[in-house]
């Protein structure tokens, strides 16, 4: 556990800590857009709309892509991976440290953006009482965000192991995530309208569907993480 934390500390230091203002530019831009500009444009709906939970659960997935690709493909590209593998760290500590760093980064930036958005909307669009995200929305954001981030981190590991460069890993991962997100939406559009209208579930069914979807996603995550654990082995990394 301590080893994985040490690896995560290294990733964060490399990503942001030691690059001065440049390291923080991406984060600040993200917070500016998702924490100030979009909330002020959308007003109270940014907090009260039930859709916001689903929308925000996607954000960590995109944030993970850049960090995880750099953590593995970047480390190989910069010729530091082999030295790291020659250390006393276990394969799992390295893998989970890198995944944890990416997920932690995405989670932190998302949480800060949500909080800044909450403050911005409450300051500009005061409607008497304090506006807060609803509990179901927070639950969907947390569960969806974590499941999505873990999934992308594990898929990112698998793609980065095969990618020649960071750019290639980021492009492939970005493309794969877009395809995964857009494919269900496109599929729904292709379904007959009469068939869709017959499927109007009530709120109880929505909860059931949500639980089933989360359980299925968790199973999928477990499978992809297990695959990444199998693939991320010293002998394989060097021989490949």
């Amino acid at each position: 556990m301590m080893d994985a934390i040490a690896v995560a500390w290294k990733e964060w230091s490399e990503q942001i800590g030691q690059r001065g203002f440049r390291g923080y530019q991406g984060i600040l831009l993200m917070i500016l857009v998702f924490g100030i500009v979009l909330p002020l444009q959308n007003g109270p709906a940014w907090i009260t709309s039930p859709i916001i939970g689903i929308a925000w659960s996607w954000v960590p997935m995109f944030l993970v892509t850049t960090v995880i690709a750099d953590a593995i493909a970047g480390e190989r590209e910069r010729h530091t991976l082999e030295t790291l593998l020659a250390s006393c760290l276990s394969d799992r500590a390295i893998l989970f440290g890198k995944m944890g760093a990416a997920i932690g980064y995405a989670g932190a930036v998302t949480a800060i953006s949500l909080f800044v958005g909450l403050v911005a909307v409450n300051l500009v669009h005061r409607q008497g009482g304090l506006l807060l995200y609803g509990a179901p929305v927070v639950l969907v954001m947390c569960v969806g965000g974590v499941l999505g981030a873990v999934f992308v981190a594990a898929v990112g590991v698998l793609i980065s192991l095969r990618a020649a460069t960071v750019r290639q890993a980021q492009q492939t991962l970005g493309g794969a995530i877009m395809a995964l997100l857009l494919a269900p939406l496109a599929a729904v559009r292709l379904l007959p309208t009469e068939w869709l209208s017959s499927l109007r579930p009530d709120s109880a069914t929505y909860v059931q569907l949500g639980v089933i979807a989360a359980a299925a996603f968790a199973l999928l995550d477990a499978g992809v993480v297990a695959l990444a654990t199998v693939r991320f082995r010293r002998a394989r990394l060097i021989a490949d």
């Binding site: 290294k10 230091s13 490399e14 030691q18 690059r19 910069r78 010729h79 530091t80 082999e82 030295t83 790291l84």
Partner: peptide
Amino acid sequence: HCGLYERL
């Protein structure tokens, strides 16, 4: 390769 982290 010396394997140093150049950003550190």
